[in-house]
């Protein structure tokens, strides 16, 4: 009997929490769910592709990467106050310390490209995660290809 009473209380709390959730969110943004503020980090991910991929133990940008980065350049020129961090990553098939260096080299390759396209040095920070933050779980070549990446993240 006691248990049943408790469960009813818990259920009603849950309903209250659900009711207040979306309402608060709506107030904060002043817009409906799914709206993206132009110039925001979300807008960057939605309009420009945020990442480029690399071959094993390489940091050179291929044609697909260049196309992606040109999209990033266009967006960054539209929003000249946006600051970015470029995160370099590797797949897990190497040693941790070397991979910190390799991730930095990849992130730097992206930074140098963006800089050459007119994005100011001061807007870009570089950080390497080496093999510490793979994009996907897994030990397949497909997973590793997703891991070997540089991700441009717009500061919030």
């Amino acid at each position: 009997m006691k248990i049943r009473v408790l469960s009813v209380v818990a259920a009603s709390l849950l309903v209250a929490a659900c009711a207040s959730g979306p309402q608060e969110g709506g107030d904060a943004s002043g817009k409906g769910a799914g709206a993206i503020v132009p110039g925001s980090a979300e807008d960057f991910v939605a309009k420009a592709k945020d990442r480029v991929f690399f071959a094993f133990d390489r940091s050179d940008l291929d044609a697909a990467a260049v196309k992606t980065l040109m999209g990033q350049v266009a967006w960054l020129k539209t929003y000249p106050n946006a600051m970015v961090t470029i995160e370099g990553h590797t797949d897990p098939r190497g040693t941790a310390e070397y991979n910190i260096g390799l991730g930095e080299r990849r992130a730097n390759a992206v930074k140098q490209f963006l800089k050459a396209q007119g994005i100011a040095d001061a807007r870009m920070k570089v950080v390497s995660y080496g093999k510490e933050r793979p994009a996907v779980e897994g030990t397949t070549e497909y997973a590793y290809a997703q891991d070997r990446r540089a991700v441009t993240v717009v500061a919030k």
Partner: peptide, 9 residues
């Protein structure tokens, strides 16, 4: 230690 900067370590 190592320092990584500007693409070289």
């Amino acid at each position: 230690m190592s320092m990584a900067r500007g693409g070289s370590t």
